[in-house]
Design a protein around this nucleic acid. Structure first.
Ligand SMILES: [Mn+2]
Ligand SMILES: [Mn+2]
Ligand SMILES: [Mn+2]
Ligand SMILES: [Mn+2]
Lengths: 217, 217
DNA sequence: ATTAATTTTTAGACAAAACTAAAAATATAT
DNA sequence: ATATATTTTTAGTTTTGTCTAAAAATTAAT
């Protein structure tokens, strides 16, 4: 598989995790930051290789084969992210771009030895689950902070958006994986929340709360 | 720079280390396992980018810029090889292929952090010197075992050929970096040698001796 | 000094992956 | 139900890196 095919496959996978229905050409084009016509070309190729099932105008879904291949790419991406943070002391906002390259390194032996070297981690630095060598994903129970009721407390377990800017915002506000967050107040006009972290109150927008995953305790 | 450009540059570098004179199109084609016409195309592109100086029919040499770029690729290749052997417990015959891919990962920060993580190694698992971040190469003093005089003893410090088959031959004969080798006899008819390792005598061909680097003590 | 052999370059073609512009299909709105 | 808007596909280019076949330059041999 080429780098490009792998990138498409991974994006179709990520879109599938959320959407349930078949994935549209435009949705893929948007994620790939490319043109719809380029996507159509690639979908034909992936269908030819039986990695996706595709019918003109009807969108695509991953085949069993494509689903497994996609999970192996995600596995590589997330294991490399763990390596970069745990062993090389990168911060969580620096690793995504580098992992985008490293995820394409071929050797299965390499990734399995890396997994062992890292002590078989179950989550990456952003709280996302790491598929094991057979493609099994640990089930992570979580909900968006924006959906947490008033007076409930959650532990931060992941981020939906892992862009540098969002992660750096969280750093600035001293929010990290494991941080306890209590919802104090919700402003119905703009859906902003007042939360409490380590005894300090903080106002956050709905956009922020909609990108933070928490687990209730 | 593309992967392909980097591969060409690295090969021109390796050929330059041995040959002194300008590098021929055919020599590059042979190393790249490609056609001379493809090499010509690429040389034009590298010349355009001022990475090599090239004149039709006269071969190429690296510019200062190309020389530095090549050394950075070699640096990455060798550091990744050290990582694979030291941290992931690969054997020295397994790492070259994987490093061929890893050497193209872009981030400077990554490679410098990797260097630090590995404790700034000066040699890779095959005894080859690792350029530092400024491109300085530790000078390794060494000679071929085939050039060692009778009754002299040398310590194995490197291999000229780092193919899997040669490295596995050395494993089988219990020859590793650091092994002491004494030349007992040279057969003038076929240039084969009788050597002594850990008290055991061993007959090796001239081809073997011509691919093993030793340092006299 | 010619001729022959070898090396290198050019010319033209091809596959992969992208693009633009236009056509076709589907979805939405009146 | 028809018109409009949106999405998706096709058709035709472009760029990168490769190839084959043929021409040109260089080197070696008589
Ligand atoms: Mn990532
Ligand atoms: Mn991640
Ligand atoms: Mn190597
Ligand atoms: Mn090496």
């Amino acid at each position: 598989m080429t780098y490009s095919e792998e990138n498409y496959l991974k994006i179709i996978y990520h879109l599938s995790v959320v959407s349930k229905a078949d994935i549209s050409t435009n949705a893929i084009a948007h994620e790939m930051q490319t043109k719809a016509s380029s996507v159509t070309d690639m979908l034909k190729k992936l269908a030819e290789k039986e990695l996706v099932s595709y019918q003109k105008y009807q969108g695509v879904s991953l085949t069993q084969k494509g689903f497994f291949a996609a999970k192996m790419i995600v596995r590589k991406h997330r294991l490399w992210e763990v390596f970069l943070v745990e062993k090389l002391n990168f911060t969580w906002d620096e690793v995504h771009e580098i992992a985008e390259e490293l995820e394409h390194i071929q050797s299965d032996k390499l990734i399995n030895k890396l997994d062992e070297f890292l002590d078989f981690p179950s989550k990456d630095p952003h709280g996302d689950p790491i598929p094991d060598r057979n493609g099994n994903l640990p089930k992570v129970e979580k909900q968006l902070l924006s959906e947490l009721a008033i007076n409930k407390t959650g532990i931060c377990v992941g981020v939906k958006d892992s862009s540098t800017s969002f992660l750096q915002y969280l750093d600035k506000q001293k929010i990290a994986l494991g941080t306890q967050i209590k919802v104090i107040e919700k402003e119905s006009f703009d859906n902003s929340l007042t939360i409490e972290i380590n005894g300090n109150k903080l106002l956050i927008t709905n956009k922020i709360a909609g990108n933070l995953f928490v687990k209730t305790i």
